[in-house]
């Protein structure tokens, strides 16, 4: 690796444009986090390989009351080792106000061999906010041992905790590939849907793996997924799979189960 570590802070703010569409009063890319827009959609385009060991990246997105925003990435994010084995940090803060909708659907995060990355995603939702958020982690590129990766997802709604989960993989996380955590699989992901409509009509817990025995006792080969209602008005799809493609298929299927009509 040839470049020095960088510190970058990108910002997005979405507001209603008064004509039923979305305005972006703030769209500020920084360093490796270049931002491109089209209508109500923002794409994070990697302007350089990142995160690299030692990088400190931050991305804040705010969806003001009544606005809609979709954010994705142009490609998978690959966590790479830096010059001195330093850890990199990627912090995302998402704020969604009342009657606002955020679709946060980045491509997978891949932990390359020797990398060390810690990500935090903090989400603050107003009571009337809606959210679809997907996170996918792939442990190592094809055929390699993964680096160290820890991801924390903290979601608060109306100021109270709704979901708080941390996943850690690699050497510093004993048992990560064992039968309690990933069972030797290399791709794991979650899709979270928060919608006040779930207050009255929560989803039912349901397994999505298809090659099960009738009693659901056996894990399938390619992957397993689960839809669960959280303790608040939200549904979580959790999937573990042998590769990124299978993972995405399971999460997509979960999303269709949870979100009937697109919103």
């Amino acid at each position: 690796m040839t470049r020095w570590s960088v510190t970058a802070h990108a910002r997005i703010t979405a507001a209603p444009d008064g004509r039923g569409g979305t305005a972006l009063p703030e769209l500020a890319g920084d360093g490796p986090l270049a931002l491109r827009r089209s209508r109500d959609r923002v794409t994070v385009v990697g302007a350089m390989a990142a995160p690299l060991g030692g990088d400190r990246l931050r991305l804040d997105a705010t969806v003001l009351a009544g606005a809609r925003l979709r954010v994705g990435t142009a490609a998978a994010t690959i966590s790479l080792p830096g010059r001195d084995g330093a850890e990199s940090v990627y912090d995302v803060t998402l704020t969604v106000e009342d009657r606002a909708v955020l679709h946060w659907l980045p491509e997978p995060l891949i932990a390359a061999a020797g990398s060390r990355l810690r990500t935090t995603t903090r989400v603050e939702l107003a009571e009337g906010a809606r959210l679809v958020l997907r996170e996918e982690q792939v442990l190592g590129r094809s055929g390699e041992q993964p680096g160290a990766l820890s991801t924390r997802l903290t979601v608060r709604r109306a100021g109270r905790p709704l979901l708080d989960q941390e996943l850690s993989f690699g050497q510093a996380a004993p048992g990560w590939d064992g039968p309690a955590v990933l069972g030797g699989r290399r791709a794991v992901g979650q899709l979270l849907v928060v919608d006040p409509a779930f207050e009255d009509k929560p989803v039912a817990a349901r397994l999505l793996d298809r090659d099960d025995g009738l009693d659901g006792s056996h894990a399938s080969d390619g992957g397993d997924a689960l839809v669960t209602p959280l303790a608040g008005p939200a549904a979580l799809v959790t999937a573990v799979a042998r590769d990124a493609l299978t993972l995405r298929r399971l999460l997509d299927e979960g999303q269709r189960e949870v979100v009937g009509a697109p919103w």
């Binding site: 708080d164 941390e166 039968p179 997924a225 669960t228 959790t238 999937a239």
Partner: peptide, 10 residues
């Protein structure tokens, strides 16, 4: 701590 284990949930 909020450490979780996907297979334990499944």
């Amino acid at each position: 701590p909020a450490a979780s284990a996907p297979l334990l949930d499944l």
